[in-house]
Design a binder for these strands. Structure first.
Lengths: 227, 227
DNA sequence: CGTATAGTTGACTCATATCAATCTACGTGG
DNA sequence: CCACGTAGATTGATATGAGTCAACTATACG
């Protein structure tokens, strides 16, 4: 429901005009789209936020780093998601392509100008920010108070909602990414997944441990003590 | 800076008109202000969000609960803070008075109507939501990746910024509240504070362990690995 | 194919939680 | 104003869930 609204927003903004952006080594310019190679940075924390992005293909992780390298991923951005929308002048996260990823670009100024004159756009901006806030609020509960098994269960429920096609979840992110999203280590994530597998709650497609099926959503929902 | 803006917003909204609200046992009606006794609930999660609040005196905690009682406090609201502002129809947290607290009430509809016609109000709403989002994002990093000592140091730095008067921090909240804010237990918080005291980084005023002075902000900032 | 990267699993450690015993401050009623 | 009771805070002893270190396996990629 919100997805449709935010998509409208993106498309409307994009129709505003072309964005003249100098390409760099990791990007291929194709009108108002960019492609980022797996692992490359889309923007860095503290960098000026001149563009808003929408994932056309691929996946993106947004994270903060502590000086010693500890990483907290705040969100994964999947196909259709808009990210990089800031109110202040700088990005508050670093965004990286998890796999080869194509994004649509929207000039931020044009969005702001539209919001100025169009109350609908303005309301959509607030709605998107609220969505992000809501996600962060739920994630605080997860990070502050849930066990490792509950966290992994919650992650699977979230991903199921967002990217399950015909019962199969093709996770684009590594165990380390999942761990940094859930405030755990990759070993703990791996053990939790193995445990859920033993318990018959999830299955792996073939031998690929990133292709997951949910065999028992009810049990998973029970573990995902959704507030 | 933002505080001033959001205050303006509140005052403007309040001038809109009186709010006829039936009092309950824990409230005293005084024009558009309410007083809540220590520990009483201001609103509950999932309740309709018809009002926005501003703390006139006292302190408030906003939290989510898991079914088994585990609690995550998302934010403390101190004098001047606005809280309970929702975009959807329901509150996403439960809000409780930490001590006897007086709040100003603003009818949400009136805010929305103002936003409709006044782009400035609309921008302020977005700005406040973004502030909340930023806080939540930083808190995710804390909850996901910081040690107990770092968390407590970060908490003290935050409170120092928000309520230190003449070098003394009179904390309104209990050790349990702090623990639920930081994703720790009250014992761990207590030990961390004792440790910071031993290290000469903080001091206690008199025998009251809730009156804290920061003796060495530099060391505290070092522990507060601020991203 | 073979090399590099990602994932799993096991053994052990450690930070924080849990359980428990004081200790202290504060509000209440005599 | 003082004694008492209660809630909050500290501190100690112990338990435990998740982290660390390490070996091994599997998968993807050139």
């Amino acid at each position: 429901m919100f997805v449709r609204i935010t998509n409208d927003l993106a498309y409307r903004a994009i129709s505003f005009g072309e964005l003249g952006i100098a390409g760099d080594s990791n990007q291929k310019v194709s009108l108002n789209e960019f492609t980022y190679k797996k692992g490359s940075e889309i923007y860095g924390e503290k960098e000026p936020a001149d563009y808003v992005y929408q994932v056309k293909a691929g996946s993106v992780r947004s994270y903060k780093l502590l000086p010693d390298g500890r990483r907290q991923i705040g969100a994964f951005h999947l196909v259709g998601d808009i990210f990089g929308l800031e109110n202040g002048s700088e990005h508050r996260f670093t965004a990286e392509a998890i796999v080869n990823t194509t994004v649509r670009l929207i000039k931020r100024r044009s969005l702001e100008m539209m919001a100025e004159s169009d109350a609908m756009v303005s309301r959509n901006l607030l709605g998107m920010t609220t969505e992000n806030l809501e996600h962060a609020e739920n994630h605080m509960l997860l990070l502050g108070r849930k066990t490792s098994l509950e966290r992994v269960a919650a992650f699977l429920v979230e991903m199921d909602r967002r990217l399950a096609a015909a019962g199969v979840m093709p996770l684009p992110m590594s165990r380390r990414d999942i761990a940094d999203y859930l405030g755990l280590t990759l070993e703990t994530v791996s053990r939790a997944l193995s445990r859920l597998h033993e318990l018959g709650i999830i299955g792996f497609i073939g031998t690929n441990r990133r292709q997951i099926t949910l065999l028992n959503r009810r049990q998973l929902a029970t573990l995902d003590l959704q507030n």
